[in-house]
Design a protein around this nucleic acid. Structure first.
Lengths: 250, 250
DNA sequence: GGTATTATCTGGTCATAACCAGTGCCCTCC
DNA sequence: GGAGGGCACTGGTTATGACCAGATAATACC
């Protein structure tokens, strides 16, 4: 028995974490069958609703899949999730086992232009933090990233150590800002001279350009970022999953 | 009363579709409050579990958000969802109100090389459908896409009309293959001469290259596709959402 | 032996009924 | 008038119990 009712954590959360730990430890290999819902009920002494809430969350997230009449099974890609290139450069580099580093190129306050003000939902002319960084993995330059944030939501951000810590970690720990949504547009173009130099690009000098607007849970924008990415060294990798029965219904 | 028990569709599905229709029609603007769970229960004569299943699905998908103690609200971006460039070119173009078209450049059977065989989980030398298409929106070429599919999973695919219908629609309707997962890698490079001509690219000739492996629900690969994308005409847009409490818990 | 029936699994859906912790309003008391 | 306490809401969590359709294996029948 690993679930306790004395914890402030809901029972279904405890069960989720227990199963996730099993998956991470390599017990329960892909396509292996989990105990049935009613077996969990008997073993844990909780109700079926509780078990189903835990399991269906994990199904939603792609860790498990169900086959009616047969059972619940471990998904093909139960490990190696979230190595999503977008939400955090630091996290994605670490996920590949490499060492991330940042070199701050520019860090200042600016008055918002009309376009920036629109994107960040602030008044035109409001103070905006501009942070340009060269981001490296194992010492190799991967991308140039220019972030803009409304200063009102992160006052004093420039006084913090922006080279050591991930920007997103700083926002979360220092200001309670958790990012919920990222809208990105990806294009490509020829690099200009300074970009070519910073990224130590070869002859052709092609770069990926990622334009991203990052929003908090309330839908308010937190960051506007443009990333100039070295296409060979840091290809953008991306996993999209369609769980749920909603898409192809009609 | 818009829900019926005589339908084969589950009640919570009917409720989901009803709310989604309201969102699509523009009733229920962003941040407006929905009826509370118990109000739905009274109005529809169903149990709270049913209402919660519908609502929590919609919350998971980002259409709604909840505030404990206050209510359930329409999300900021309730409309314009799924204009995700990856899962279906046809759908994404139509979502922008443009007219998609396909021109088949090449359609044949091939023996799988070792690399292809590995990606598609077939034996080396097995039959593979190769389909190269020029994909247009409003008559303008947007991308060249070369798809490879295991012939065993879609026998006779080449005999179908591949210019009129979306490939994914054909797979779903003709073979019962529903795509569940897409793993993509995005890079950029200089286009070669034939690409430049087909896409009517300008001087520089930079293209985005999307390498995608598409998998069915059982984790088995269905399609391996390489897309050569016109970066200015068809920038890749992408929305990532972090619903659920799973990420930053620790 | 082969086939059809049946019993018993599975997950999927739904009902009724609690209690909790927040939020907000109103009413009373000072 | 202002402060406090209650009360009626909200979504979040959990229990118990029921029926369905699909899968499976054992059993009974021919």
């Amino acid at each position: 028995m690993l679930l306790t009712r004395e914890s402030p954590k809901p029972l279904y959360q405890q069960l989720k974490e227990r199963i996730l730990k099993d998956l991470a430890l390599g017990k329960r290999p892909p396509h292996s069958r989990l105990p049935s819902e009613r077996e969990w009920v008997r073993k844990l002494g909780v109700s079926r609703i509780t078990v189903r809430q835990a399991l269906s969350d994990l199904v939603q997230q792609g860790h498990l899949y169900t086959v009616p009449g047969k059972g619940i099974f471990v998904g093909e890609h139960s490990d190696a999730r979230e190595l999503n290139a977008f939400l955090s450069f630091t996290a994605s580099v670490e996920a590949r086992g490499e060492k991330p580093a940042n070199r701050v190129i520019e860090a200042k306050l600016m008055r918002a232009t009309a376009a920036i003000a629109h994107d960040l939902h602030v008044a035109s002319g409001a103070e905006v933090v501009v942070l340009t960084r060269l981001r490296l993995a194992n010492g190799l330059p991967m991308m140039i990233q220019r972030s803009m944030l409304p200063h009102a939501r992160c006052p004093g951000l420039l006084d913090r150590d922006l080279e050591a810590l991930s920007l997103y970690a700083t926002l979360r720990q220092g200001y309670g800002l958790t990012l919920a949504r990222a809208e990105s547009t990806i294009t490509a173009r020829i690099a200009d001279r300074s970009e070519r130099k910073l990224l130590s690009l070869g002859e052709s000098g092609v770069v990926l350009v990622v334009d991203q607007l990052t929003l908090a849970h309330d839908g308010e924008p937190v960051e506007r970022a443009e990333s100039i990415v070295h296409p060979e060294r840091h290809p953008l990798s991306l996993v999209q999953q369609d769980n749920g029965r909603s898409l192809g219904v009609g």
